[in-house]
Design a protein around this nucleic acid. Sequence first.
DNA 1: TTAGTTACATAGAGGGTCAATGCATCAGGG
DNA 2: CCCTGATGCATTGACCCTCTATGTAACTAA
Lengths: 170, 170
Amino acid sequence: MLQDMGEVTSDQVAPDTMAEKADEDSIALAGAVYGLLASLLRRAPRDISLTSLATLSTLDRTGTKRITELAAIEGVTQPSMTTLVASLERQGLVERRGDPGDRRVSLVSLTEAGREYMLRRRRAGTEAFATLVAQLPAAEAAALAAAIPALDRLRDLDNALRDATIRARA
Amino acid sequence: MLQDMGEVTSDQVAPDTMAEKADEDSIALAGAVYGLLASLLRRAPRDISLTSLATLSTLDRTGTKRITELAAIEGVTQPSMTTLVASLERQGLVERRGDPGDRRVSLVSLTEAGREYMLRRRRAGTEAFATLVAQLPAAEAAALAAAIPALDRLRDLDNALRDATIRARA
DNA sequence: TTAGTTACATAGAGGGTCAATGCATCAGGG
DNA sequence: CCCTGATGCATTGACCCTCTATGTAACTAA
């Protein structure tokens, strides 16, 4: 998505038909989402990469996974995931065991330290985000809360699109 | 924000007071925003970095800027911006002129090719995002549109926070 | 003029990603 | 039982982006 999105601002077009009204909304929306994401991103994690964080989160939510599986889920190549898991292992956040049933396979799971890391991170992050949201006028906070299902669905749609793209390449 | 956010999912807590209801919303919201961010990011630009894109956008919106100014706006160090601008200059997207009033200064502005690049990107991105939004149920699309001001304000708040952090370090 | 400050450039290092490739293991047909 | 092709993971080498530390030129004020 972002690779095609650019920064979209609503003052770039002059809609003149009914059909373009929806487009106008999309434009404003794309701009708003992009702007927020870019802003959040600029203050992004430095201690661990976004992909590492997503991987830990996946392991936390769904339990043990193999390398190839994790790579597909996070949308990176298998060699990248190998490197990433090795790094997380050095940090003591995950551990690897062999699969008794298939000795080619390496099963990755969260260590206790990994679970604690995610817990700390979740608490601190929620707090920080809540602080931000708390500064919104009540009406805007409510509007935001009401948009949560839509945000979730957007993510799912985008994920589905990515998967389709990957399958199309294969 | 993200450096502290982690992936936040709403099933991690068991709120039991009125005050914690707002927290629950924040948690769900943080999770939704983070999830969308991660999903969009995985399909992020490869032809040019996110910071480069943001820099071009800034130049497009606000016109000529000096290196140091751009670095501060985009939240990167001055040497990084020097490298980044040099790269964009090689690609013909920006140009540099000296400042007649202060010969230490390098003034950066968008070339015609740079303006065209942003225009193309904006169109393609809006289209892609609109395609995604078009797949939302009408009610969710409306909820999202209603949340635009809140999203904008969140970005501004986050930006302000970053600026404050930078000033605190200085 | 001289000292301090400011604006930008350069050097070196670290982290993350990728494509290409190698190695071990598995599964199925002679 | 043993080849053969497929599969899972690791390694290699390259590229990009960012940072810190440092250097150079230009400005400013005493």
